[in-house]
Each structure stands twice: as C-alpha cells, then as structure tokens.
Design a binder for these strands. Structure first.
Lengths: 262, 262
DNA sequence: TTCCTTCAATCTGTCTGACAGCCTGACTGC
DNA sequence: GCAGTCAGGCTGTCAGACAGATTGAAGGAA
C-alpha cells in the first residue's frame, strides 16, 4: 500500500534490486506521546481489570496522573475511538468498547462503496464462513456443540414466535465462530458483516434478507454437531446461496441508498 | 460487539424479544464537529483531486478555512491517521496515505498477539486466498492473465538473480487479487498479511518464510492462466501448506518476539 | 413513602494562545 | 557548482477557559 510496485518489465534489474533492499526497511515510527499514553492506558486497563462497557477515568484525571496535557489524552483516546476500542459520551465519559489487552493490535480495512459492494462483502463472507464452518465441524468440543444446538433451538423458538430473530441468528452464527478455535475468523466476519449493514442500512433479520435461509439452519446445525465437515460446508454454502439471491434481488430493485455511510 | 448476547436458555422469551426489537435500532451518532471536518476534508480531497502521497493543507489553514479550532482539526486528522488514511510528519505536514474517496469507509479489526497468532492469520489468509484464486481462474480477462504471467516471470527472474524477491512475490499475488474482479479480497488479504508481518517482524521473502513454496508458483500461474479453477485451488493450497510448515517451524523454535508490536 | 423536579458537580467538546522542536527551501560563502 | 546556514512554516504539546450534556443527589409534592 505504501510501496510502489516495480514495472513488470524484466529488463531493469537495478530498480528491482533497490526496491528489494528497501523491503528490509520498516518505517521507524517516531515515538509520539500519544502512543505512550495508549500503552499506559492498555496497561492500566489490564491491571485494573476493566471490562467492555466499563468507564475509563476522566480525561482530566488521566492527564494529571500521566502528567500530560488533556489534549494529548484526547488525541490518544481519539485514536482508540476511531478504531472502535472506546466510545465517548459527551458529558459522561469514555467507555471501553472492545477488549483492549496489551499485546493486541489493530488493522483498519478500507472499503469503497460501489454499486456491487453488497455482493463483494458477501463473497468475502462466504469464503470465511466456509472455512470457519469446516473448522468448527472438525474441532468443536462437546460443550461447544451443545452451545451451537442451544442457540439453534433458541433461534427457532424466536422465529416461530414471530418476533424479530436478528439477535438470535447472530448468536447462532457466533457460537459457530467461537467453536472454530480461531477467534480471528469470527472477528473478520463480524466486521465484514457490519460493513454490509452499514452499506445496506436496513437491519439484517427483517424479512428483507435471510428469511428464506432460516429453514436451512437446522441441517447446518446437525452437520456441525455430527462433526461432518463436508456436509456442514455444503449446508453453509446453500444458506449463503439463499442470502446471495436476496442480495441480488435488492441490487436489482435498486434499493441501495446512494448516500454515503456516516 | 456492542450488544450483549442473550443467555442460551430457551426459557425467558422476554429479554430476547427486547434484544430483537433493539436490533432495529442503529446507534445514531451525535454529529460531532470532527465528523463534519472529515466530511469536508473528503470533499476537498475529491474536488482538488489529491492523490496518495499528496500533502494536505496545514492544520492552521484548515482551521481558518473551516472556521474551527486547530484542536478540532487535529482530532479529526488523528482519526484518519489511526485508520491509516493519512500519515503525519512532524514539522512537515499531513500526507494522504490511502484513497479517501467520499463513500469509502473503514472497518477496524482487533488481533490479539498470542503464540498462535501467526497460525491464525495464516488460516484466515488461506480461506481468502482459496476464494480469490478460484475467482481469478474463472473470471480473469486475457489481459489479466498476461499480467499474472508477466509478474510470475519477473518473480522467477528476480529469484534466480539471488536478489530479495519480496516485492516481486507481492506483485505476483497482487496480480491474482486484481484478476478476481473483487478488490475487497485483495484488501482484506493484504491487511491480514500486514498484521502477519507486524507480529513476525522479519520481512517476508527472506529465507525464513516462503522460500520452499516459490518453486510451486509456476503451477499456480499455469492453472490460473488456463482457467482451471480446481487445479489452481489445489496449487494455492499446496503453497499455503508449505508456508504453514514454515510458520510452525518458527513457532517451534520460539523465534516469535515476545515484545508487543509498536 | 414514593415519585417527580431541580440543581450542582462533573465531564466532554471546542476554542484560544503559546512555545519547543522538526523540516524545508532559500540564501550565502567558498 | 556545492555545502553549510538560517529563517519561516509546521506539527506536537501544554495550559486555561467556557458551553453544553450528563448524572446523581437533595428536596418538594402527592
């Protein structure tokens, strides 16, 4: 991203050599005060055992304790805020919004909003869902399989009661992610999904998207609980096919709001 | 992430209903001044045609033009900085680091640095690489296939010359991403890879990782250019198997630096 | 007693002004 | 032509101030 790709012509070896040599250099970031503040905050959070939702000390307190100006504290918190690690409420305080353990770091993804973004994010989701489903089917513990089944039954109960089943569906899929023994899959999928929702602002789980696929979740649940990876992958693909049909229908009707996401 | 998952017990339907109802609500962001500034900046960048690497107007100028305090400008730019959209150089200015087109947005990922993070990011990469390889084999245009082959030949030329082939390998894989007709795949993979590199600071492309797989790239290139998706997927899996072996070897020798990434 | 109103303390969002250190381009002397 | 020097511009950081939002507690009404 920050590096220019050399031309494909095999002729000039000099510039390629120079580029390769430069490949050994990493931009040494000038330690700025904000970073020190964030490190200190991460330590504080770990040592104080703060959990998601807890309130951080006020900016004034932090500034005094760390012996820096409030502006510096604010800029540091701004970084975390834009990474989704904290949320700030005017007049109230800063609240932990994610698990900030020292030794966790963050990669921002940039997605361009174009006409087919919905399909694109769905494609990425499919690749990840297939992998995570296979993982879960192969590696889930008995407790995790029981959890998946419990979530599935809860989902069906909610659905048959006629209530909105967004949260229940979310919980079901998340149980699968958790069973995959690789939390990164779940994180990436959830973030991609959140991008999906930001593009198409209508809440997932209404009749618009996914309703047709709900009847198929039972087979997926069974396959995972049986440890049958191939059948599970087959089922998740069928489910995603249904969702993709819905997405294409939405694209065809041109419901996609042209406005940029805020 | 900001929502509590209801307990799996199927007993209480009330809380689940409340959560489902809440699923229809989106957090309405209290328009804060920073956001307005960022919107204005995005417009400015679009209208002025600023490209990656260009310098933004100074904070003072921006503050005066937008009639806000410099603090506000700084906090807004801090957001973009932490999202990797701009880089700031002390005493020099702020520089565009990514394509900030109005209508692009950003999803931050959190990765915990643990012993097996390398394997986890590699697993995610595998899921995405398989998908993107299949896409590329099926949908690449003739020009794109030619580009892939050119990059491959360049890669081999660089390799046989004994120089470092990091950039060339990067370019080869990127040509595949570009041929997939879904730029999102490439973006996600590159970001995951950059996380990989931040964990294991040694540059990819030295003898440590990937050298064994280089000989296998030819078959991958052929399969994609032939449009044989299944063979291409098979080949990329073999390549990733080799890389995974290297990763496991690194983990076994405990080379992973214990320090947190800065 | 219980509920509602009011209020004061607290906190964030924003602006102003200031200063040190870094960067850059132009100038100067050789 | 070239290298060193310097002034101006820019960012990083701090201190102080004020408006608006929030919150919890005190106090009054039913």
């Amino acid at each position: 991203m920050e590096k220019q790709i050399p031309p494909a012509s095999t002729g000039s070896g000099r510039s390629a050599q120079a580029d390769d040599a430069a490949g050994h250099l990493r931009p040494l970031e000038s330690r700025t005060r904000d970073m020190d503040v964030l490190d200190a905050l991460a330590d504080m959070i770990a040592k104080a055992g703060l959990k998601v939702g807890d309130r951080l000390p006020s900016e004034l307190v932090l500034a005094q304790r760390l012996a820096v100006g409030r502006s510096t504290i604010r800029e540091a918190l701004k970084s975390w805020q834009s990474l989704g690690l904290v949320t700030k409420r005017t007049g109230s305080g800063s609240y932990l919004a994610a698990d900030v353990s020292p030794g966790s770091f963050h990669i921002p993804l940039t997605i361009k909003l174009e006409g087919e973004s919905l399909l694109r994010t769905h494609q990425v989701r499919r690749a990840l869902e297939v992998a995570v489903t296979r993982e879960a089917a192969c590696n889930a513990t008995d407790a995790q399989r029981a959890e998946i089944r419990a979530r599935y039954e809860h989902l069906m109960a909610v659905f048959h009661s006629g209530e909105h089943w967004y949260a229940a569906d979310h919980a079901f899929h998340r149980a699968i992610y958790d069973a995959s023994s690789n939390p990164l899959f779940g994180e990436v999928i959830q973030q991609v999904q959140s991008a999906f929702h930001r593009i198409y602002t209508e809440p997932f789980g209404t009749t618009a998207i996914g309703a047709a696929s709900l009847a198929l979740h039972g087979a997926l649940c069974d396959a995972i609980c049986d440890g049958d990876a191939e059948r599970a992958v087959e089922q998740i693909n069928i489910i995603l096919d249904e969702t993709e049909k819905d997405v294409r229908r939405i694209l065809a009707t041109g419901v996609l709001d042209a406005g940029r996401p805020k």
